[in-house]
Design a protein around this nucleic acid. Structure first.
Lengths: 222, 222
DNA sequence: TCAAAAAATGAAAAAATTTTCATCATTCTT
DNA sequence: AAGAATGATGAAAATTTTTTCATTTTTTGA
């Protein structure tokens, strides 16, 4: 996970960073509010740990600015204050959570996980390999191009992605993608698979759908 | 908003309920863990306020049981304990937030709003009137029927729904729905609006898209 | 290795969607 | 109230998507 630590107290920031790295995550430190905004423009993070008291721009102001750009990145405010009005202010400013100092690293980590889990499930995309399918726009973003899927292509790919790595029978594809209770007399499934393969392989030089003779298909990705 | 208060201390529960009603929400009280689960099976709520210490089943157990059913309803735990391990436990059990007693009503309300807002944005549907558009399947569920939208119908309706109640110019529709930087020479927008209106009005006897002469359109719903 | 079964493919056909265009209706301005 | 501008509509045309079908290729097992 990519974590941005916006904290001016070097000791606290460094200690957090060390712990994050140890836990297998990546972490970067921003020393004030302005730097936080600058860094966030350039790099995508999964979570922002944001100190309430910081030079130049307060955490609250940073929080509001970020939300005003439309970003929904999970933000956890670090605060030394405990009075209720500040908690309310924090949530109203668009923070997802806050932690009162002093805190243990375990608590920080638990909250980051909770908040990131929620965020992930709220983003309507599915990733496979270096590619991302946006479930709303039905556009696949690859490192090189964008692919817009048709209705059937989308339904089929989504079914594959929802069952990544497991064998999928043609019967189950018929049921899910065409809503047919019976297996059709034509080779409609094979044809649809062919169309999808062609579309994917034209843009991404990689094979995703493997045929299991006599059984069905498997989708590989990650 | 529909709020379920799972709390065995009658005084606290009643006080919360009174405040919620005053704030224009609906609230129901469940007196123990079992009752909470029973009520939740029958009625859909927007938020669950869940006391940690309750007879029969603890809040934590209730929380786990609810999550194990796959429900993602926002849960806020009410706890009298302050030690860190319990906070971590709460979040791990699947709670979205927790409030330490004693709390002010303002804090409860702020957290409910924050958590409900997040939940809402994570559900991939948009509601208008008695109808719900599923953004993934692109199916509108009305009290009477299901309508499957085509590509352009969906793009257009989504743009309308994202801008409910405000005037939308044809130029902005061109930009958003067709990605055109210029206004086309044909009446393509009017035609698309016509098609969408027809589809909606065939299934729902109600007019949603109003024309503002010389300006554009407004979508009504709610 | 060979025949049978299963799957893939290209091209045509069919179906659905989107766009255009000519015409009709409505709204606004004076 | 009349003319001009704007918007709505039905039907046809164009385009795109989906399906079918005949044929080729691949896989499996004897």
């Amino acid at each position: 996970m990519e974590i941005l630590i916006a904290e001016d107290e070097i000791r606290i920031a460094e200690s957090l960073k060390k712990n994050f790295l140890q836990a297998g995550h990546h972490a970067l430190i921003a020393k004030d509010g302005e730097e936080t905004l600058n860094v966030m423009e350039k790099i995508q993070f999964d979570v922002l740990l944001l100190d309430w008291r910081m030079p130049k721009l307060s955490g609250l102001e940073v929080c509001r600015k970020i939300r005003s750009t439309g970003s929904e990145i999970p933000i956890i405010l670090l605060t030394a204050l405990t009075d209720i009005s500040n908690k309310v202010e924090a949530l109203d400013a668009g923070a997802d959570d806050y932690i009162t100092k002093p805190f243990s690293f375990d608590e920080v980590m638990a909250r980051i996980n909770a908040v990131a889990r929620r965020y992930k499930s709220s983003v309507s995309t599915i990733t496979f390999g270096d590619n991302t399918l946006n479930l709303i726009t039905r556009i696949i973003t690859t490192p090189k191009a964008q692919i817009k899927l048709t209705d059937k292509e989308f339904d089929l790919l989504k079914f594959f992605l929802d069952n990544k790595g497991t064998i999928i029978s043609k019967e189950s594809i018929c049921e899910k993608v065409w809503d047919l209770p019976f297996t059709p007399q034509t080779n409609i499934v094979e044809a649809a698979v062919k169309n999808l393969r062609k579309k994917l392989e034209e843009a991404i030089e990689q094979k995703f759908i493997k045929t299991i003779y006599g059984e069905g298909y498997i989708f590989f990705g990650d």
